[in-house]
Write a protein that binds this DNA or RNA. Structure first.
Lengths: 330, 330
DNA sequence: CTAATCACCGCAAACGTTTGCGGAATCCTT
DNA sequence: AAGGATTCCGCAAACGTTTGCGGTGATTAG
C-alpha cells in the first residue's frame, strides 16, 4: 500500500523518471502524447508528489508558519482564516502553532518551524517575549518573518498592525461626541506595545479635546481582573457614565460585572470597545465598537509575505485602518 | 547563510557524515569524546535537522494533521489545544487546515495532508460530506484517520465522540427534575449524526419519563436561524417556559432573541444548553449546560492516535462522558 | 548530399538524512 | 603470542524529486 512514485510510473510506462517528472509539469521538451499517458496513469494511481522530496530538492517548502499565543481568540481566528484562504489559492499550506503565551513554548515552536523549513512565518509574540533569537535564526535562514498584532518593539522588522493609535483616537472621539463626562477606561497588559499605543492615543485625544471629562484608567490582564475592577468602581462614588474596553477580553469581564449588578446599557452606563465584532454582537443592545478586522489584516500580511518571498523587501511597518461600528451601547 | 548540515559538521570535524549522525542521537557505537565534540559544534552552529530529509529517509514525518470545518469554534479550539499540547510533549508537530464546511475545500486540504505525508489525521467532517474517498486515500497510505465530533456514519472507522446520547438524556433529565412543563428544543443541522443522537436521546427521555410535558422542536443551522425561530415562538401563544439548545451556535441565537425581547432568565424562560462552557459563562446568570469538553476529547483522541501509530488498531468508537454544570438559568 | 536544426528523451548528480555492513584498531583471554 | 571480542568509525545505498547536460533520430535548409 505504499504510495506511487515517479519511479513507479516511469517503470510501468517504460520511461525515465526525468521524463515523467517533466511531463507532470508540462515541460515543452515532452511530447503531447507521452504527457497524456503520464498524466492518465498518474491520475488513475492517485499520484501525489512527496512534498518532502520536492522541498529537499528545491528548498522551497511552500509551507507557511503561523505562531500565535492562542488560537481561541476571535482576532487571531479571522487572521488565520484569511491566511489559509489566501494560502490555498496560492499553493501554500499552513502550519499553526500556539505558544500559550509562554516564551519557552514559543521557542520550542520556532524550533519546529525551523526544522520543517517553513518558507515564511507570521507571528504574534507573547506578551513577555524578550529574547528574539529564535526569530533571528529564521531570519538567518532567509525565512521572512512578519510580525502582526502584538509585535516586538524593535526596528528593522516587518510588522503588520491595526491602526492602534487611530482606534484609540476614534474611541475617544466617539465618547466626546456623545457628550459623556465620566469615563472609566480599561486597558490590557502593561507590557504590550499595543496597550501603550491605544492608551496614549485615547488619553491624549480625550484630554486635549475634552478637558472637562473625568477619566479613570485601569489595567487588567484577564477577563476576571477586568470584572473585579469594574465591580469596584461601579459600586463606588466614582461610578462612571461610560466604560471603554481596549479588547474583547476586557469587554467580557466588564459586561459580566455590569450584568451581575443589573446595570442598564446604555441608560445607566454606556460601553464602547475595540473588538473584531464577535463578542459585541452577542449582546443586546449590541456593543458599539471600533473594528479591528483580523481578516483584513491577514490579507494584508499575506500579500506582503508574497512580496518578501519574491524579492527581499526592506523592513516595513504596515498599518490597517480602523472603522467605527455603531451598536446601541453608547 | 545556508543552514548547517551534517556534512558541514562532519567536514569541519574531520569525521564522516554517518558518525556525526550517530553521535547526534547518542548511538552506542560512538565514543563519548567524539559525541561531545559533535554535540558542541552542532549547538554552537544552531544545527537543526532538516525535517524533510529525515522524513524522506525514515518515512515518518512526525506531523499530525487536524481538519476541522472552522477553527473559530470553542469546541474545536480546545480540542486542538489539547492535541498540540500532547503533540509537543511527544515530539509531533501539528498541521491545521479548515474546510470552511465546504466539501470541495475539504478535498483540497486532504490532498495537502497527503502531499505532506502526515503520519496521522484528526478530522471533524463537513456537515454534508458524502464522498469519503479523500480519507480513504490516506488510509491506503497506512495513515491512521481518527474522526471526532462530527463523524461519518460508517462502520470500520476510528471515532472519538462525546457522549451525545448521554448528554441529550442528561439535559432532558434536568428539565424534568426542575418540573418544567413547556419546552422548546432547538437542534442543529438535520444531516449531522450528532444532531440525531442528541435529538433521539432528548426526546425519548422526555416522552418516556415525563409524558405530561409539551415539547416543540426546531432545527436551525445557524445562530440567526435559531434567533428567528425563538423570536417567533416566544411571541406566540405557545410561549415555552424552557428552551433547550443543542449547541453553542444555537445558544447564541436563542439568547440574542431573549435579550432583545427583554425576557428574564430564568424567571420567565429557563435555558439549558450543551456546550463547552465559554459562551454560557459570558452571561448573567450563567447558563446551565451539559459540558462537552473539547480538551478532554483531544487528549483521548491523541492517546488513541499514539496507539494506532504504534500498532495497527481495530477500528473503535470511543466515547467521552458528559457532565452537568449548573449555572443560574434553570 | 551534407550540415544544421529541432523535437524528444535519458543520465546522473544533487538535496540532507539514516542505517546495514564491513573494517581497522585496541582490548582481553588463555 | 595468537586468537577472539570489543570499540569505534567510514562506505555506500537509499528515500523521491528536480534539472543541467548530452544524445539520438528525424526534419529542414542550402
Amino acid at each position: 500500500m505504499t504510495s506511487p512514485t515517479l519511479k513507479k510510473i516511469a517503470e510501468t510506462l517504460g520511461l525515465s523518471v526525468s521524463t515523467v517528472s517533466r511531463a507532470m509539469k508540462s515541460h515543452p521538451d515532452i511530447s503531447a502524447l507521452t504527457r497524456q499517458k503520464v498524466m492518465d496513469l498518474a491520475n488513475s494511481l492517485d499520484y501525489e508528489p512527496n512534498a518532502n522530496a520536492v522541498q529537499l530538492r528545491t528548498k522551497n517548502s511552500r509551507l507557511l508558519g503561523v505562531l500565535v499565543p492562542s488560537i481561541s481568540n476571535f482576532f487571531y481566528d479571522s487572521f488565520i482564516a484569511a491566511i489559509e484562504e489566501e494560502g490555498r489559492s496560492n499553493g501554500y499550506a499552513i502550519m499553526i502553532l500556539q505558544s500559550g503565551n509562554q516564551p519557552s513554548i514559543e521557542m520550542e515552536n520556532l524550533k519546529l518551524f525551523r526544522q520543517n523549513r517553513i518558507s515564511g512565518l507570521f507571528a504574534a509574540i507573547t506578551s513577555h517575549t524578550d529574547d528574539l533569537s529564535g526569530f533571528d535564526k529564521l531570519g538567518d535562514m532567509d525565512t521572512p518573518v512578519i510580525f502582526f498584532d502584538v509585535v516586538p518593539e524593535k526596528a528593522d522588522i516587518h510588522t503588520v498592525c491595526q491602526a492602534d493609535t487611530q482606534a484609540g483616537q476614534m474611541a475617544a472621539a466617539t465618547i466626546i461626541q456623545k457628550k459623556k463626562k465620566k469615563v472609566f477606561a480599561v486597558f490590557g497588559d502593561q507590557h504590550l506595545s499595543i496597550t501603550h499605543k491605544r492608551f496614549d492615543a485615547f488619553m491624549q485625544t480625550l484630554t486635549q479635546h475634552a478637558p472637562g471629562i473625568t477619566i479613570t484608567t485601569a489595567h487588567a490582564s484577564s477577563s476576571d481582573e477586568a470584572k473585579a475592577l469594574t465591580e469596584k468602581i461601579i459600586t463606588s462614588a466614582k461610578k462612571p457614565d461610560t466604560i471603554f474596553c481596549m479588547s474583547d477580553e476586557i469587554l467580557i469581564g466588564v459586561l459580566k460585572a455590569l450584568q451581575e449588578n443589573g446595570i442598564c446599557i446604555p441608560g445607566e452606563i454606556a460601553v464602547i470597545a475595540i473588538s473584531n465584532g464577535f463578542i459585541p454582537k452577542l449582546f443586546h443592545p449590541e456593543i458599539t465598537y471600533i473594528e479591528t478586522s483580523g481578516h483584513a489584516l491577514g490579507k494584508l500580511a499575506f500579500t506582503h509575505m508574497m512580496h518578501c518571498l519574491q524579492a527581499k523587501q526592506e523592513p516595513a511597518a504596515i498599518i490597517l485602518d480602523a472603522v467605527l461600528v455603531e451598536g446601541g451601547s453608547l
